[in-house]
Nucleic acid binder design. Structure first.
Lengths: 130, 130, 130, 130
DNA sequence: GTGGTCTAGACCACT
DNA sequence: GTGGTCTAGACCACG
């Protein structure tokens, strides 16, 4: 389990964590009962403030996605139904919509935009696969 | 010349303006010497504070993309070479990269992601065309 | 760390701050990693608006001279090489050039101008030394 | 008679003109009865707005330094006593004071600062002499 | 505690 | 008419 943190990105760190956990759960890569890396481990690994990680986990707990197991850390909650394809696409849509707007304003045609997207997808595949 | 402002978006208004001007220049829809709508006009049209617009224009001036004509307004700087396809794709890449990361974390395959992107592109085409 | 603010000078306050930070960094009095006084502290100390200070800091961040440590404040960026004598003289040159033009237009000879400059330098030495 | 105009300088154009006339009169390079170049000529020569030149001349007229000769243009007023050395140095002092402050903040010693000033003076001599 | 954003309104300077 | 600067005060986000 590794989070992908960009400390200088415009979106705050705690939100990056929250969204990644949501997606990993939606995709089934994290399943009910799986445990998350401890606040301390994540904080050390990414050189960020433990309180930032804690805030993310707390939000996810409030949301019902995580459960706190005393003395053990956080685990994925049991109560979540597996997400449908529809749910996943709904999580992806905002990012695609932003990209579409930009492509249109740049005057790029769909073919170019789709090709560029394919390239990016390939790069991320490499990052995760090996 | 119309800006596309989403007052409730997470990205601040002044930054939305900055980015749109960058793209409109990159795409050639704004050319060197063209003048921008005045701070007050933009502010009134979108019901936002003139200072917010002014901040955006100032940043673009610092960046060298705009020039101030004292007492007259802002114009696109003369010193910019026409953008290449490379430049345009560079402006699009960050958004595509974000979307790719999300798609991978959701466990969607490329075919699904590309189809969803095509759908979004079509929607934005409709928004602009008619 | 004290800024020298002249509220009634023709050059705007935020610019006075920007230029002083540039010089303090160039002279090595501020080094990479040093943190700056917080926006609120500077604002209170000089009885100016926090936004004025914030504007200065933001510009310096854009310039790459400062880095934002989220939730902690601003620090001098790590990426700056120590300035050479050349750099320092480059920051001084515009002011000397202005003074030279004025001296020439007044018909003063170099000896008089240099003597007057020496006098001014002495006065500033007194201001800082004791 | 040539004005030295820097359109992108921070000090407004009209003020650049005003100050230069003041200095040229103080130095005796412009004497009572001498006529100034017409608004139209100055405006064309420097590609600036005639109203800007006019504003400068009007200010100088209000100040009593210029007189309007109908149909002939502006001439240096008769009523001015020749400036003393003291007066001239007083006009130079602000610029020297600014330069001194900068030099001190940069940590330059007086010798270096004076040498740099001498260099600048030489450059301006070349600009005017030949 | 830190800085960021936005508003409302004032005043100034330039053309 | 144009943009620039500053203020006062509010609210948010981050650590």
């Amino acid at each position: 389990m590794n989070f992908d943190i960009a400390p200088n990105a415009p979106t705050p760190i705690y939100r990056q964590i929250v969204e990644q956990v949501r997606r990993l759960v939606a995709s089934g890569q994290l399943r009910p009962g799986d445990d998350l890396p401890s606040v301390r481990v994540v904080a050390l690994h990414h050189a960020i403030n433990p309180m930032t990680v804690s805030k993310a986990y707390s939000l996810l707990e409030t949301e019902g996605l995580l459960e706190r197991r005393r003395g053990l850390g956080m685990v994925i909650a049991q109560t979540r139904a597996r997400s449908t394809q529809q749910d996943k696409l709904a999580l992806l849509r905002p990012a695609l919509s932003t990209a579409s707007q930009i492509a249109k304003q740049l005057g790029l045609d769909d073919k170019q935009a789709l090709a560029a997207f394919q390239t990016c997808l390939n790069e991320w595949s490499k990052k995760e696969a090996p």
